[in-house]
């Protein structure tokens, strides 16, 4: 029976699965990596991280490969890698849609004042 997917990932989930691109890691290493990568913008709470790891194990995105004392090390599975790639594609699509919508709005010149700054910022996102 195929395992259920987690559907759309939250930002915390995405960065957690992204952390596994560096190789197998444990909870604290994941939290530290994400904090460093995002320059402190994202500081995962330990409760959130533990829930994400439990869910990832449950749906088969990661598996436990070593236990050292109370510390557990996990690695990404093929399912996890696929989920990560799917999420990247989804995010890319979102970004492309945002860029396209922003350019169209600028060309038409019908950007409402209230949202002008925000839409211009979206339109200014570099193409991937």
């Amino acid at each position: 029976m195929p395992r259920k997917s987690l559907g759309i990932m939250t930002e915390s989930m995405f960065y957690t699965i992204l952390a596994f691109q560096t190789g197998p890691c444990c909870g604290t290493e994941i939290a530290e990596y994400i904090e460093k990568l995002t320059r402190g913008r994202i500081q995962l709470g330990p409760g959130t991280l533990y829930t994400i790891l439990s869910k990832f194990v449950e749906v088969g995105y990661v598996r436990e490969i070593a236990v050292e004392g109370r510390k557990r090390t996990y690695e990404l599975t093929m399912d996890g890698l696929e989920a990560y790639r799917n999420e990247i594609m989804r995010l890319q699509q979102c970004l492309e849609d945002a860029q396209s919508a922003g350019k169209n709005a600028l060309q038409k010149g019908d950007v409402p004042d209230a949202g002008k700054d925000r839409n211009m910022a979206v339109a200014a996102v570099p193409a991937l």
Binding site: S12, M13, I42, Q43, G45, P46, G47, T48, T51, K55
Partner: peptide
């Protein structure tokens, strides 16, 4: 039940949607 007495430490749950999963 967990506790923390240092105001500078990060929250336990930083993503409400993940907490909703729990």
């Amino acid at each position: 039940i967990y506790r923390n007495d240092c105001a500078g430490d990060r929250e336990m749950n930083t993503d409400p949607q993940v907490q909703a999963l729990a």
